[in-house]
Nucleic acid binder design. Structure first.
Lengths: 332, 332
DNA sequence: GGAGGGTTTGGAATCGATTCCAAATTGAAG
DNA sequence: CTTCAATTTGGAATCGATTCCAAACCCTCC
């Protein structure tokens, strides 16, 4: 049995297609009698309006798409929950797709916005250069969350990564650390900002940075172990290590512990993101909490305005407050 | 500037819409001269075919949607990678959306298949009852991965959860355990199958199960701690605990360690899934590895056949082999 | 130079839902 | 019983890309 159309419904209900459409869209200009006939016919034929026909005519889809390198990240999945909940309140469906850092796949997904498959786009961790993000946001409905461009040309929601790294580094120094190392991720802007905040805190305290190690590939548990091993193989050990996220910090702690040293007594370790891994770690990690859910909500609100108000193009960046969460991995 | 249409392209290129469409779709029946004019016009107008118009005419979208309660699960995100890679090879875009276990939201997303917003659906952890899944699969392109219905009415790819739980429990017994407890999740079919495998292994060894504790809400780290605490508060301690996944097992290990007991010497612990958390845990977890990526690939292949071959409706279940990964949390 | 083959092209019809306009119906008021 | 306004209805036009059919075109060969 083929799909029923609005024509079929009109025929079985004994009314015109106009009336069927009016019932479907809750127009008040329909008599009670027609409404019942149409509703009955719809149920009888198991009719659903075809999305492509409706989208074509209405020129919108009520769908948005979010893109991230990777869906595992706890911050991103939480932020996407925020996007999704806000979207649902306004009748939008939100979908997400991983790009795996593949530029070609990212382009293919961004094309879904260009060709009208979705009404808006949320970028969590773009692979394309900042300039392209901004060019895209210039003419289409795009917002950024977490990983945002350096300029004010587009719109983005994030925490102040530089300040957060500065805060947590200052905490490390306050607990007595003097030789501080960092395990970071320079491929992302947020990673570079965190590096910068780290350096600034050291400079302010009159200290000079110890070893700065940066990952090339995945910024994960094994990378954390690998880099820490390299760190421990040198003669002068650091007394504190700042890691760009909790997972890497967990790898770091693990490698230190396996080497027979103690955290935080011999070496303090700090993470970033306050993901569940921060609590799974032994000792539990001092870290930075990001208001990810709220960031997602805010991003959708801005996207909605962009999609619905003609000519609205919000620019600039919103930085939500982060929180320093102190746990046993850094207590003196 | 409004969106350019195929008409606009035809006008600026000085050809007909038919020719433009032929160029767009790579038809050979176009002269080199026309092709160039059209390509130039397309570039000049920055033209992209509108998805809804194309989808309407072609009666397919080249998009599929995957649904899961939750995107964090490492097995699901890996399986979805498999789906996505296989889909990309066939020119399909694959998207995913979390349902949060909310029936209404799930229905809204399933409607995207019903109304032709996508061509196929991959279900990872449905919230709707099995019967509805099967009714849906009966008439539309749906496949299940990981969490599959009990009957052969629909199609699904999974491991044999019962057998896997049986295998790992037998391993626990082989390393000397005699009083075995379990932390499980009965809300999911896979959870019940794992429970059944666990019980069977005990029965085969002539043992009777110790405490069987089941979570109500989230099956996460904190739930693992909470349940383990309850377990440790009784007078007769178990000498091995089988947990329904690695995260819960990590919580379990943590609670045991915090209580001053040792894993595996006092109590052995086994997990499930072989996620990165199994390696982050101290000691590292004995667990079951699922070939998640391969499961996803296979599921897409079947979905593709269902979507493209008229009348094809593959039924039944495919169980891929799992692997028992033995680590320090259970070594004698 | 013309007939016959293949190649290329134009343009109308189509997909299915929405919307606008005019026509039909209803109801109330006189 | 008319008249007028308000309500309800039918149906054609529309959205933009694809596809089919017929017409136009180009060669080649006799």
């Amino acid at each position: 049995m083929a799909r029923a159309t609005v024509q079929d419904v009109a025929r079985t209900a004994g009314v015109s297609v106009g009336t069927v459409s009016r019932v479907l869209n809750g127009s008040p200009a329909v008599s009670e009698a027609s409404k019942e006939k149409v509703t009955a016919a719809i149920r009888q034929l198991n009719y659903r309006p075809l999305a492509s026909a409706r989208d074509l005519r209405r020129d919108r889809t009520m769908r948005i798409l979010a893109l991230a390198k990777n869906l595992n990240s706890p911050v991103i999945s939480e932020a996407f929950r925020g996007v999704g909940d806000a979207a649902a309140l306004s009748g939008y469906v939100s979908l997400i797709a991983p790009t795996s850092g593949d530029l070609e796949r990212e382009q293919q997904l961004v094309d879904m916005l260009r060709n009208g498959s979705v009404d808006g786009l949320v970028l969590f961790s773009p692979t394309m250069p900042d300039q392209e993000v901004e060019a895209l946001a210039e003419q289409l409905s795009v917002v950024q969350v977490c990983e945002i461009t350096g300029s004010e040309a587009a719109f983005g929601v994030s925490i102040d990564d530089r300040q957060a790294a500065f805060d947590i580094t200052r905490h490390l120094i306050a607990t007595g650390a003097r030789r501080l190392a960092m395990l970071g991720f320079q491929a992302a802007r947020s990673g570079r900002l965190r590096e910068s905040g780290f350096r600034q805190a050291l400079a302010d305290a009159g200290l000079s940075p110890g070893q700065m190690l940066f990952v090339q590939g995945d910024f994960d548990f094994h990378a954390g172990r690998r880099l820490t091993k390299k760190l421990l193989d040198t003669d002068t050990l650091p007394d504190a290590i700042f890691c760009g996220n909790d997972i890497v910090a967990a790898g770091c702690v693990r490698e230190i512990t396996d080497a027979g040293l103690r955290v935080p007594d011999d070496i303090a370790v700090a993470g970033f993101d306050d993901s569940v891994q921060a609590e799974m770690c032994v000792p539990e990690l001092t870290t930075i909490r990001q208001p990810a859910y709220e960031m997602g909500r805010l991003a959708f609100d801005s996207l909605l305005e962009r999609m619905t108000v003609p000519g609205a193009h919000r620019r600039g960046r919103v930085f939500l407050p982060h929180e320093l969460v102190i746990r046993d991995s850094t207590r003196a």
